[in-house]
């Protein structure tokens, strides 16, 4: 079972994502800030990250950058989540090597599909 790490500082958003991912058949890990997220990546080796950009402490961008700088996580699928709807941020995220970029509020169905696509490209609906 693929492991998805949900990183967001809003408990209710984490709650909703956790539920969605579980429903889609993934096991879910959660983290409320960047530090914890990095630790959990190390320890649990998740298959995909749902990463919010505005986090307390180190931001989502920094987490992304740190992971991409390590060979082990260069290919790790990462979907950025943001409440800022600005194009610059999207571009920045993509440049840093994010696989996808989702603006809050998002369509749950679409998000689940994106996650599935990334984890198993063959199973495209």
């Amino acid at each position: 079972m693929a492991k998805v790490l949900v990183v967001d500082d809003e408990p209710n958003i984490v709650l909703s994502l956790e539920f969605l991912m579980q429903q889609a058949g993934f096991s879910v890990l959660t983290a409320e800030d960047g530090e914890t997220a990095l630790q959990k990546v190390e320890q649990e080796n998740p298959d995909l990250l749902l990463l919010d950009i505005s986090l307390p402490g180190i931001s989502g961008f920094e987490v992304l950058e740190k992971l991409r700088n390590q060979d082990a996580y260069r290919q790790l699928p990462i979907i950025m989540l943001t409440a800022h709807g600005r194009e610059v941020e999207k571009e920045k995220g993509m440049a840093l090597g994010a696989d996808d970029y989702v603006t809050k509020p998002f369509s749950t169905q679409q998000l689940v599909n994106q996650v599935k696509n990334l984890l198993d490209p063959a199973s495209k609906p």
Binding site: N12, Q23, A83, H84, G85, K104, P105, S107, T108
Partner: peptide, 21 residues
Amino acid sequence: SHELRTPLTSIRAFAEILRDS
């Protein structure tokens, strides 16, 4: 916009969950 989107995200997510499940 950020502050408005945050609660809205939860609301929409749970509303869709409730609709779909």
